[in-house]
Design a protein around this nucleic acid. Sequence first.
DNA 1: GTAGGGTTAG
Length: 467
Amino acid sequence: MSQATRLTRNLNLRAVAGDAHQLFDKIPQRDLSTLNALLSTHVRRGDVERAWSLFVELHRSRSDFDAYTLTPLLKACSALCDHQRGRQVHCFVVKTGSESEVVTKTALVDMYSKCGQLGDSAMAFEEMGIKDVVAWNTMISCYVRHGLSERALGVFAAMQWRRVEFSEVTLSSVLKACGAVKGVWLGRQVHALVVVMGRDLLVLGTNLVGFYSDCALMGEARKVFDCLHCGKDDAIYNALVSGYVHNKMYEEAFYVLGGMKQPNVVSLTSGLVACAACSDLSKGKEIHGLAIRFGFDLDTQLRNALLNMYAKCGSTSTARSLFDEMPQKNVVSGLEGQECFVAMKEKHGLDPSEEHYACLIDLLGRAGRMEQVWNVFDSASEAGVVQNGGVLAALLNACRVNMDIQSGERVVGKLLFKSKMENPGNWVAISNFYASIGRWDQVKDLRSLMYEKGLQKVAGSSWLTLE
DNA sequence: GTAGGGTTAG
């Protein structure tokens, strides 16, 4: 066999292997339960877009879906935060008579809430003929997720009224709600129920630590932690550390952190918050070192906490260099911001405010995408939100960092002419613009004008420890 | 096939 033939064969084989999934999709009358299994596998693996396209593909040739097709699909819509697709699946649920399935109806309740449509969620729950414990738990956690803890507790009360036996999951959500409303009395009763139940103690113990921390009862939180005889994992340590930090008990937080066998990114992030709050630069540096050693220093949340810590501890040059190291990631975050913005408009039907447009312009400007900046500015003007100067100030900053001086000067004109100049931020944007092109005379004039108008930029502050 | 625990800033 010639080398060329072998190569061609290999390539063909590879193409066949790669296309196996697509070929599989194209068999329209394949056994539904096999297709359902494939779909739920995609969802379980987090391949939610893939699950959706499989469904779309199937829909071209058949419509005999059942509850086992639609339930995982609803979970995919939840993960995508897409209530429009969710609503389409809801139609299929009705069409195929899957509404009578408690599991599917529960998935609907969950989907609407996770896609921000709490009203539809509650409606679907009310419509349920038979509600099992999972359905009740889902409704409780929906309210907790939306910050409506009293309502969540109301559902818990209704559940008890109807003598539905609760589970560990019920208590987990209820403790969260108790913490949010600082319901010490009820939370303590739930604590007793947890003890009586004696199951799932690590998760519920973590919830209890969280609940007592929310109620500023750190002694109780510590007691729960110490009395737990099962092996402790990262989450419960993190809950205790974060509890101490939120209650401003920084020394205790550091002590617990130091007792951990191996640090994790969450506990180190909390630790940095503590360092920032008590201006402990040396401890902050120590944690920074640990973060580097364990490879957490690229984590976005930890990095933000790190930046904040250096800034609050007065080490602005380090903060600055950390910030300067980030342009690549900022460009990426620009892109993420844009996706968010589009999703906000298209998926959730929300009208972006001036701040939202300003934020997007800022992100795009930093990424050097001036063409898009101007497009966004045009749509902001069309939407009629260019009012208080936020958008124009962001536009001016974008011109400044991209050295587009001519456009910048036009924007200054617009800003002075059209905006309410009570906002010091607008003056600062103009002043920064002139400073960047060396027009110190203008800067001086602006500053004195601001002074005359009694305007002052809200100064950034730091709390320094003097050594 | 559905539900529950830990993290930053503003």
